[in-house]
């Protein structure tokens, strides 16, 4: 069978989505975790409306980051354990493309649900509608970057038995700029100013991660699969 590059991308994407659909809990767990973390803050702190409103951008972004970190563990692990990755390594195609397709599938399965749920949770934090729009937009641009950065860490630790905390420790600091920009964009919108600046910067980070992360993760996968 002869596939073009686009064809290969599409096949890997479809396959990963199908595998994910068959393991429903993989899709649900990150979102449930996201909702849980967001629900912790009013319980632990103070459920007053104006207080929560000020807290909302940061809390929602932190929860999204934690959910992304938590889900990363599964990104390449199953493929390495059942030998799929070895088959993919032997393909006469750039491995970075395969990684990109897998990361996109992973984001569609774990990141996108978080983005979709976020506005509803923002309402419980009494966030005004225009700030919710910016929150949605910033998460939509920012969480793929988180997945891409995470793919490097997931690839590095895919061969290790225990990697949960290690993965978070490694990738967490790399994700901080996305967190700062995303939360701040929402915060700026909340205070009525123009948030296009940080949104553009988030977009720039996404472009950078799209071009640099897949080859780095491909190199890391080669090392892990050794």
């Amino acid at each position: 069978m002869n596939l073009g590059l686009g064809g290969l991308f599409w096949v890997v994407l479809q396959r990963d989505l199908m595998v994910a659909m068959r393991r429903w809990s993989d899709i649900c767990n990150p979102v449930i975790f996201f909702v849980l973390v967001v629900a912790l803050f009013p319980l632990a702190l103070n459920p007053r409306a104006e207080f929560l409103r000020a807290l909302a951008p940061g809390v929602l972004w932190i929860a999204a980051l934690l959910a992304a970190l938590l889900s990363l563990n599964q990104l390449f692990r199953a493929d390495i354990e059942d030998g799929t990755m070895e088959q993919l390594l032997t393909l006469p195609y750039p491995l970075g493309l395969v990684i990109l397709a897998k990361t996109l599938a992973h984001w569609l399965v774990t990141g996108l649900p978080v983005v979709v749920v976020a506005p509803m949770l923002a309402i419980t934090y009494h966030l005004p509608a225009d700030a919710i729009g910016i929150l949605l937009l910033s998460l939509l641009i920012g969480t793929p970057t988180l997945s891409l950065l995470g793919s490097i860490g997931a690839a590095l630790t895919a061969g290790l038995r225990q990697s949960g905390v290690l993965l978070a420790l490694m990738v967490g600091p790399l994700m901080l700029p996305v967190l700062m920009l995303g939360a701040r964009a929402t915060d700026i919108a909340l205070s009525g100013d123009d948030p296009t600046g940080p949104l553009y910067l988030l977009g720039a980070l996404l472009a950078l991660a799209l071009s640099l992360a897949p080859p780095a993760a491909a190199m890391a996968i080669r090392i892990s699969a050794d």
């Binding site: 490097i152 590095l156 920009l181």
Partner: peptide, 19 residues
């Protein structure tokens, strides 16, 4: 593996600094 991480980190250091 740690070399890949160090390289990913060094690309990120200026980004982190400026953000």
């Amino acid at each position: 593996a740690s070399a890949v991480l160090a390289l990913a980190g060094v690309v990120n250091v200026p980004i982190i600094h400026f953000s």
